[in-house]
Amino acid sequence: MPRRDAFSSLRQSEPSPNVPLVPVKKIEAEAPSITTAKQPLDLIPVAARRTKRNRDWDRNHRDEKTTYRGIPKRLQETVSDLAASLNVPRDELVRAFLEYSLSDLQSNRLVIAAYPKAQRMTLFPTGEASNAYSGKKEASSAAAWLDQAFPISGRGQTSAGKTKPGRAQNKKDRWESRATYRLPVALKKQVKAIADDHDVPVGELVLFFLDHGLRDYQSGELRLSPSPRASGKTLFLDE
């Protein structure tokens, strides 16, 4: 006995106006086209698979994306909050602070005073054979220079080179805190060049600039005036 068609009801039911009958084939050139209903699957609504997001924009603007280390979370939040209150994108605010700080730097209103980090010692500071070994007098003067540059306080110093674990952890946390922004490539390069000139990490310089910009904004010295940018037109104004 032949097997019954379980889906005959579905196939025979009235097709909805949204589902047109499709032409199958023309028997002859002059003959009218024969139409037939689609299969059950064509008659019922089916879900579409998630499509991959178009990443062309990201690819084309990859150079603008930059990540800086050492920007504290708190400062990032402050900048984000301020951007939200001004109704502007966060990256634009960061750009404004950086450009403001750069202009202050160029006009000598902002000075970068980088301190040497006492991480490593060398006997050849200029890279050539020099005073690696010398007389007693010079040696003592070198020691005096060291004392001046990196004064050692008597109190609380347990052993040479050791820092308090809490402080070290804070420093590590700050260093691991990263912030990613989209900035004009020229601005990125300019900031990097200044960081290289002063031999400081670029993240530290960005932090310094952001802090400067934010402080001047809060004191009223820096004024930011957002202006509307048309993103299209409409025929119906909101009431």
Binding site: A6, S13, S16, P17, N18, L43
Partner: peptide, 24 residues
Amino acid sequence: LDALAKTAETLRALRDTKGWRGGM
């Protein structure tokens, strides 16, 4: 399978008459 056909019809009716936007 017979019941499936009926469920499928319900889905079609929901789309055509009630503006359902989901899918099977």
